[in-house]
Nucleic acid binder design. Sequence first.
DNA 1: ATAAATAAAGACAATTTTATCTTTATTTAT
DNA 2: ATAAATAAAGATAAAATTGTCTTTATTTAT
Lengths: 155, 155
Amino acid sequence: MFSKTAEYALRATIYIAQKSSEDNKLGIEEIAKSIDAPRSFTAKILQLLTKDNEVISSVRGPNGGFYITEKAKGLSIRTILETIKEDDVFTKCVLGLKACSEAQPCPMHFQYKPIKQQLIRLFETKTIRDLAKELKTGERFLANFRPRKKTRVTK
Amino acid sequence: MFSKTAEYALRATIYIAQKSSEDNKLGIEEIAKSIDAPRSFTAKILQLLTKDNEVISSVRGPNGGFYITEKAKGLSIRTILETIKEDDVFTKCVLGLKACSEAQPCPMHFQYKPIKQQLIRLFETKTIRDLAKELKTGERFLANFRPRKKTRVTK
DNA sequence: ATAAATAAAGACAATTTTATCTTTATTTAT
DNA sequence: ATAAATAAAGATAAAATTGTCTTTATTTAT
Ligand code: FES
Ligand code: FES
């Protein structure tokens, strides 16, 4: 569905939203590890999202790092995707026609359309804050669980 | 949503299903042109689908070409996607976790799940024949329409 | 002022996807 | 049998995506 860039962007944003605040900024090291993504690549992606501090905010120097404002937490998932130019799902045809339109529909169009609308609705209505809250329940994951060989039993 | 490979595979298959028969086989040239895809790349993709004549059938030599049997027209879109190993949409997590599972759901999982199920249902129930029929109505497209500069008006 | 900590920027590299070109094998018609 | 037409196979190349490394700029603490 999404590129690696988009996946890391979403996971990182949700992680930052859940864990950070203006006076508890997170370093790239911690973020990348927590979402199980390559460090430098994640840094590059965050650079896109920190442009003008629009989605994610950052400051350099000691005690610097990434955080996200309460205001930005109200942004939709769609906003994140658009910021990183991953908006295919909103515009493209499922069979790859340049545009998805009723004027020149592909053979799947009318069956796909209602599903696409739900996807759009989902990404438009869900905010960063919503997803961070889900994560906070502790029963949601942003990285692959590494199962232990055995359950450690202490005597 | 899908790779170029998948898009071309689907468009080509639908085109072949609508236009060909066992005694009216189609050449790669015509197919590629009709679906607006690169010729040699399309040929490569058709090689995947003609493996064992499972989805698409082919014969070489004069009057050779590609066609699809009535039986194969009953195959689902999912079968095409699986044949070319494009089955992410059926298995992967929307945020990129290795697996989409209730055991370790991502923060979008429970919202995305019902939509995903509709996608799966769509690709599983729609057959090649269904889509070929849609195309036959003449009001569906497999290539981008090239608009004319002006509407030609004959006196 | 200086040093240290941090993200930003930029250059580079590896991998995957997309695309093309050439050669080979198969089939048909003559 | 031969030639022609076609897809299959294989080699290569271009482009895009993913990933890494090095240098620079900024901020803070001393
Ligand atoms: S035209 Fe293909 S999905 Fe709308
Ligand atoms: S776990 Fe992410 S969509 Fe199911």
